[in-house]
Design a binder for these strands. Structure first.
Length: 273
DNA sequence: CGCGAGACCTGATAGC
DNA sequence: TGCTATCAGGTCTCGC
């Protein structure tokens, strides 16, 4: 999975590695990851472009080319975006391979094809920005904003946190981690949360994300960084994928339940409904 | 409009 | 050993 910390880690690495580099060759396989865009159009618009800057919006990675075009990448669940040296053996399930003017190659690999890759004009980038909720690490993800949203919503707290229109960048890992840190059950209805619980939840989300970014993201199965290396946050997970092990706060055995259609790791003692 | 269920997809794994 | 069923979940669509 690639949630905000993994995408942000990749953004920072790409900023250092590819800004100023030119795409001399774009090999594109037509897949559903491109939506209605053809592989040929993607190739034509990417080839010859120079990377001017790299940004991120939620879980979307945006590689801005000179001119009006931006390469958009969403890694879905199993997607990896790798920077390979010349001559390195092909990776499986390559959808897109960009050969740079220094000989290195950016490869988008995704076995399942749940991700997305397209070239967008700046108008489309603006649409994407408007479509998504606030960035959780920026000031507009405020206590007041969350109180206003949660107060009028009856959905499960977990469902709202996974909803990218409400806040952009959280996925199953960091939602479970944040809910545990704030001692809130994932199936609590959002409008039943007290003000102090909302404050705790907001603080937990910020802390959990910042710590994960510091450790270059979480790897427990597929995720690899730009260099093909795992992130360092896996060993620091407090609740996610720890079913059967003791809660770090109270020692109770961690369980997996279903909430908002997702497997959800909880401490049944700390997180009561 | 908000909510929740189902669809999409394929590799890993459990069960027979 | 090899087959089949099930599960994983980010995002979109659809019905209520």
């Amino acid at each position: 999975m690639a949630e905000l910390p993994e995408v942000e880690t990749m953004r920072r690495d790409l900023e250092r590695e590819v800004v100023g580099r030119r795409v001399v060759c774009a090999d594109v396989a037509q897949t559903r990851m491109m939506g209605l865009q053809t592989a040929e159009e993607l190739r034509q618009r990417a080839e010859g472009g120079t990377f001017r800057s790299i940004s991120r919006r939620g879980k979307y990675l945006l590689l801005h080319l000179d001119g009006d075009d931006t390469l958009l990448i969403h890694r879905g669940m199993t997607g990896n975006f790798l920077l390979r040296d010349p001559g390195q053996p092909l990776d499986p399930h390559v959808h897109l391979a960009l050969t740079l003017d220094d000989g290195r190659q950016l490869r988008l690999c995704d076995a399942r094809g749940f991700g997305e890759v397209r070239v967008l004009a700046s108008d489309d980038v603006r649409v994407l920005h408007r479509r998504l909720g606030p960035e959780p690490l920026e000031p507009d993800f405020s206590f007041d904003y969350l109180v206003a949203q949660f107060g009028r919503r009856t959905a499960l707290t977990k469902a709202l946190l996974l909803n990218q229109h409400l806040v952009a960048g959280l996925g199953n890992i960091y939602v479970d981690e944040s809910l545990w840190a704030a001692a809130i059950h994932p199936a609590r209805r959002a409008h039943t949360l007290r003000a102090e619980e909302i404050a705790a939840l907001r603080g937990a989300i910020v802390d959990v994300l910042n710590e994960a970014i510091e450790r270059r993201g979480t790897t427990f199965s597929d995720y690899k960084d730009l260099y093909g290396l795992p992130g360092g946050n896996g060993a620091h997970l407090r609740i996610f994928h720890r079913a059967g092990q003791p809660c770090h706060r109270c020692g109770t055995v961690i369980q997996i339940i279903r909430a908002a259609g997702r497997g959800s790791s909880i401490c049944p003692e700390c997180q009561v409904l």
